[in-house]
Write a protein that binds this DNA or RNA. Sequence first.
DNA 1: TATGAATGAGGGTTCATTCAT
DNA 2: TATGAATGAACCCTCATTCAT
Lengths: 189, 189, 189, 189
Amino acid sequence: MTESSGTRQAGVRRNREALLAAAAAVFVEQGVQAPIRDIAGRAGVGLGTVYRHFPNRAELVTAVYRHQIEECVELAAALGREPIAPAEALARWIDAFVEFLVTKHGLGVALQSEDPSLLALHTLMLDKLVPACASLIAAGVAADEIDPGVTAYTLMRAVGNLCILGPGYERAHARDMVARLLAGCRRVR
Amino acid sequence: MTESSGTRQAGVRRNREALLAAAAAVFVEQGVQAPIRDIAGRAGVGLGTVYRHFPNRAELVTAVYRHQIEECVELAAALGREPIAPAEALARWIDAFVEFLVTKHGLGVALQSEDPSLLALHTLMLDKLVPACASLIAAGVAADEIDPGVTAYTLMRAVGNLCILGPGYERAHARDMVARLLAGCRRVR
Amino acid sequence: MTESSGTRQAGVRRNREALLAAAAAVFVEQGVQAPIRDIAGRAGVGLGTVYRHFPNRAELVTAVYRHQIEECVELAAALGREPIAPAEALARWIDAFVEFLVTKHGLGVALQSEDPSLLALHTLMLDKLVPACASLIAAGVAADEIDPGVTAYTLMRAVGNLCILGPGYERAHARDMVARLLAGCRRVR
Amino acid sequence: MTESSGTRQAGVRRNREALLAAAAAVFVEQGVQAPIRDIAGRAGVGLGTVYRHFPNRAELVTAVYRHQIEECVELAAALGREPIAPAEALARWIDAFVEFLVTKHGLGVALQSEDPSLLALHTLMLDKLVPACASLIAAGVAADEIDPGVTAYTLMRAVGNLCILGPGYERAHARDMVARLLAGCRRVR
DNA sequence: TATGAATGAGGGTTCATTCAT
DNA sequence: TATGAATGAACCCTCATTCAT
């Protein structure tokens, strides 16, 4: 019905992008529970526009993180195909995951929250990231490099938690701690 | 004017104790962000009484956990005096800390939050727990059992984070992950 | 400029018809206060189109019911010409009115509301239906079958109110009550 | 715990009364769907105070009308004991009910609405008023004065509807229509 | 003319915090 | 000192309505 009007559609898309960017920024500053109004303000749009694009907080949160989650999934597949030691593949993947988590630093909290508005994100992670991680772990276990007691979901939750930053506990610290946790997941010989 | 001030003071103290107990219970159930009113209700006192004893949430949170923090401090000293391997002492102490964290399960969040109302708790940890932990680490490093790169504060923050529970990530998982983290802190031989 | 204006006008008319049908359906389902957007969606047109055809809710409501109101007016004239007792004519006409009201079940509320957006409908009723009803009543009064104290407007409002349905008060109940009201309007012999 | 302080309690009660009065007034002017804020403003209290006294609209609406509903119930009992014709008793009771309805004229709408926030009022009516009315009807039926086809609930809904006022349909009209409806409920001899 | 994105007022509700008694 | 009533800021979310394309 509405062919034509490429300009309009572009404007809509730009608005959506602006909202995602604004939300990501606000999430970093205030966490995923930030008032929707703040996000609207940051994006320079009205409150209703946020709700038009994302009918509820869950949709917004999910949209903000979906892209990067997809990237993580793809990375896992790529690493699985590379000719490197499984434990090394897992380590690299976790590195990327950490990078993701500490950059969008509201996400650590998001993964931990029981808030229903964040359930969708949680589900997304479970559906996408856990299988990706699990395949890398399985390879590591098969190669006798990773302790079979390690579960993908638990490991990811733990890594997510370790990536909850704060004053005095910055990215570098999180990375160091994650590395040590991973070391503790290696096969005990 | 000073009519039977002993009795009055006793009443005041009793109120304070009741509030601490109530707050601890409510924190476990609802987290440290629970409505103050709920705590007052649980303690059977008026809202104003809470504010009289604890002018803000931070004071209340701090007071709730101070006692157990002291116990952890003492445990560290005791463990330091026992004739066991330093790494073992550290492990046992961390065990106790984890037990504390997962029992009062709001605390993980509390330690991680940047919320100004929880800053005091953070400070308390820094002042008390970090030195205690640092001494155990130092002993371990001296005995060549612990990696010298491990910092007390960072380790405690990490452990604190690992103890943020949620559905699908329960006590046992936290304990397992902490154990692996600790394993990763041992001297690389 | 006037390119194939016949086609265009036809399209415009079709849109208008679609909107009236959609509005009637939505009014039945959700009442006359239903969101304009729902009506637009049901009609398969844009929101702006609704406003173009009907600058406000009142216009839309009025338009939706105008046709049926006209039918009622014509029925009154027809019944007035038939060789039946005036009271019987009035009864039949009220029956038709009730049928109209309970079928389009938002209308009862619409007639009763003081909402300015529904004023136009009210006016329409006054202008069209009341005279129609009044003539039937007048005939009944002249035949000494209807109490001269009965006013067309009041009776119609009353019937309109009796046709406001709800759970536990359905069509059949409304019909029964209207019949009794009408019985109470007959000449007291 | 809080003996003493009669003044305080009095103030609280006065506030509650003020709220009920304000709500009643606002309901008359704007209907039972009026913004809670308006009621707070009219009562000269803060918004939170309304919610303190009445946790939701249903409680407020119910409270506003409860007293008068009780009076109607008692009147029914009293009329039932009086040595008058059952139909006369019913008529008087309905008169009182109408008086109640047209005075608090938001109530007609309230009874008709399916809004969950008004369910409580509906229930109250069902529980209290319907039995009261039913007993009067039963007496009338037993005395062969009232048509056995008349149901208390339906009659009350109908009367409630007839008492929904508007411009051009005032109290007197409602009373007249109700009287005629009631006439139509008498036993057809 | 038609579209539907954008706007923002409006209304519900929760709770931290103050303060008169 | 203790109480808890009152306050109102802050958030959420829903539409009616406008207007650029």
